[in-house]
């Protein structure tokens, strides 16, 4: 069943269809939130809140945009609200499992962790959506509530900056 079919059914009150939509998008959304949030608990909360909001306002969903675009827009808005509440240094990001004491960590050399350190939040999101989510410029601009030219310019600038860091890291590794 396609997304639009599931959305239509979910709008009519078939809750099982919304669960299917959640199952389709939760990994993509959660991986974005895990890398983006200050700690995994915030990522859990934002993930939960995003789907609750999507469920509550499903009737106001505009089919002109992809469902993933809408979900990321909601998640970003929630993240912005969360960012206003506190500031924690990015390097303290550590993922601890709720189920056991084993610690899950985003690899130190994961490039997204590096990007978060060196790039502004909006640029990070633009990079994630464009390169990880394969969203087009139009969708990225919609999610970020920016113009398409802003997205293009900042993607270009972020890429230059990243390339510099990337090359520097390679240089450091070879030394």
């Amino acid at each position: 069943m396609t997304d639009s079919e599931l959305i239509k059914k979910a709008q009519k009150g078939v809750t099982g269809c919304f669960s299917q939509l959640v199952a389709r998008y939760q990994v993509r959304l959660y991986s974005y939130l895990l890398a983006r949030c200050h700690n995994p608990f915030d990522a859990d909360d934002v993930l939960q809140e995003t789907f609750i909001n999507a469920y509550q306002y499903l009737n106001s969903y505009n089919p002109k945009w992809a469902f993933s675009t809408w979900l990321f827009t909601i998640a970003r808005r929630l993240l912005q609200q969360l960012d206003k509440t506190y500031f924690i240094p990015v390097d303290t990001v550590q993922l601890t499992s709720n189920e056991n004491t084993a610690t899950l960590e985003i690899e130190q050399d994961n490039i997204w962790r590096l990007i978060k350190k060196h790039v502004a939040a909006d640029c990070y999101d633009a990079l994630w959506l464009y390169y990880k989510e394969d969203a087009d410029i139009k969708n990225v601009a919609f999610i970020l509530n920016k113009s398409q030219s802003w997205v293009k310019t900042n993607l270009h600038r972020s890429k230059i900056k990243l390339r510099e860091i990337f090359e520097l890291r390679h240089l450091m590794e070879t030394l």
Partner: peptide
């Protein structure tokens, strides 16, 4: 960017399987 993004997907999948929320 893509490879490390997929790595994060795997991490997310693992945590979701543990019933994080």
């Amino acid at each position: 960017l893509k490879r490390d993004g997929q790595e994060l997907d795997r991490l997310a999948e693992k945590r979701l399987a543990q019933g994080v929320y």
